[in-house]
């Protein structure tokens, strides 16, 4: 079989973004008629509607169909690819982000529903060579093997530590109960969270 050369500059996410833009033009007409039919409450869609998301402190205005999940909006439209799409059914936790201070499954929240709230992704935990204590603790405790579940665990752990700054091992275990690691690195994960808890108390700003 001949190897096909990848086209330069075309990525899967870039392609999806392009398709989204195209259908946006076609959907605009439907939107107007629906809005006119229900004057009391605005009805948007099924075509794209304006959605504004505040991700890691930065506002982004997108044109999204109401069916686009927060996870797809982050990954395919905003290039925040830290949150991972694994089960896409609220069962594994790999897509965990923090919305309004709470850990949620981004795959099971519509992007349009996440408007007006602070959305934090794993990308917010490092800048240049500066890392959040959780990230260094994950590295130092071998809290990952293949690493695919890691961003979800890190964000679940961050939300957990904000509510429970001084947890016991058992509390950490329960606090990470919404995330799965198929490599089975749970012991390292829990120790990492305990270590990060200690360091965050010592640090001025966590």
């Amino acid at each position: 079989m001949k190897k096909k050369k990848p086209e330069p500059g075309v990525t899967r996410r870039g392609f999806i973004r392009g398709v989204g833009l195209g259908s946006g033009v076609a959907g605009a007409g439907i939107l107007e008629t629906e809005a006119a039919a229900a004057p009391a409450v605005q009805v948007v869609g099924p075509g794209p509607a304006q959605v504004t998301l505040k991700v890691n402190g930065k506002q982004h205005t997108l044109n999204l169909e109401p069916r686009v999940t927060l996870l797809d909006a982050l990954r395919d439209h905003l290039n925040y690819t830290g949150a991972k799409k694994v089960c896409d059914r609220a069962s594994c936790g790999a897509c965990t982000v923090i919305v309004g201070g709470k850990a949620v499954y981004a795959c099971n929240m519509l992007a349009i529903e996440a408007q007006g709230q602070d959305i934090q992704t794993v990308e917010s935990l490092s800048s240049g060579n500066k890392y959040h204590p959780l990230i260094t603790a994950f590295v130092e405790n071998d809290a990952q093997q293949c690493g695919f579940c890691t961003p979800g665990f890190v964000m679940a752990a961050k939300a957990f530590l904000e509510q429970n700054p001084n947890p016991t091992y058992e509390e950490v275990k329960a606090g990470l109960g919404g995330n799965l690691c198929r490599c089975g690195t749970y012991i390292g994960l829990r120790n990492a969270v305990l270590q990060a808890a200690k360091q965050m108390k010592g640090a001025a700003n966590g």
């Binding site: 629906e34 229900a38 009391a40 409450v41 605005q42 009805v43 948007v44 869609g45 099924p46 075509g47 509607a49 169909e65 109401p66 069916r67 519509l110 349009i112």
Partner: peptide, 19 residues
């Protein structure tokens, strides 16, 4: 999933009228 319209009412009465 199949495309759909989306509405976000602010009262129960509005919500009922959208069903």
């Amino acid at each position: 999933m199949q495309a759909f319209e989306y509405a976000r009412p602010s009262t129960v009465q509005e919500a009922v009228s959208l069903l």
